[in-house]
Amino acid sequence: MVSDDNNLQSTTSKDFLAISKLTKRDLQDLVDKALVYQARFKDGERSFKELESHSVVSLFYENSTRTRMSFERATKLLGGEFAYFDIASSSVAKGESIRDTAVVLEALGFSAVVVRHFSEGVPHQVAKWLEIPVLNAGDGCHEHPSQAVGDLVTLAERYGSLDALYGMKVAFVGDVGHSRVARSVSLALSMFGATSIFVGPPEMVPAATKVETFRELDEVVDEVDIAYMLRVQKERLMERETLDVVSYTKRFQLNDARAARMKKEAVIMHPGPMNVGVEVDSTVSKAIDLLAPAQVRNGVFARMSILSKLLGGA
């Protein structure tokens, strides 16, 4: 656990790997910087210089067009180049060890590597092997830290300041156990004094967590400030011998009726892409309280902020 004293310090690391390795101060700095980019972007600025002469490469062992494009957009807005090394679609690289591939990317002269992998910890392993910065774009069910920074930007934008998060109650609804988003975002929010609760069936919210857990969305929907709806993959649901889509949606879908019971100022978040008809119904998917579009937009500014911290010399 990060103590308050530590929280006031900022950390120095060549990499961006996990919210658990950052302090409140780090997060605040990243968000502040992202908000500056956001404001300048709103003013029409499209050409930033921090990553001029830098080239960033993505090393994705798991497909994710959205996250990769967000990193690409952030790099290019900062004046850098962006290249792909997508293992998932490269038959050549199959069988080559992660270490060998990563070392090649460093040898090719890239300034930083953005890593996504289906196993927890791979960006941490790569970071140990390389001297250049490594950015975690999602590792298994562990963390998705750039998503969390983006979400903080969205909340700071919504409430005017991250201080507003103090005392808020945030429900993460769905497959919390397998969600790197939930893990990163709840950690980040806790640093700003928000309390997380988890809502989901035992298949999805493991007993080992110390966080307060609820087995019905109805139990908490009227008391939360933020409902963070996690994406439920239908295929994954089907794999579980003890749960089906019908019983899931009945107990955990944020639908029109449940949304109507939420506090007036409460907001709904979703990391996207949404499974309309599973975790949210079509009304909620278009509700104005849903911050999902802002989350995508601010994801770019968050990644600009992260990249510029690691590479921009600022």
């Binding site: 658990s20 927890e120 298994g140 397998h178 493991p206 080992a208």
Partner: peptide, 16 residues
């Protein structure tokens, strides 16, 4: 499973 199931596996998101 990859590691012991418990508090640590939960924090790391690793199957226990």
């Amino acid at each position: 499973g990859v590691m012991n199931e418990g508090e640590i596996s939960y924090l790391l998101g690793v199957q226990g």
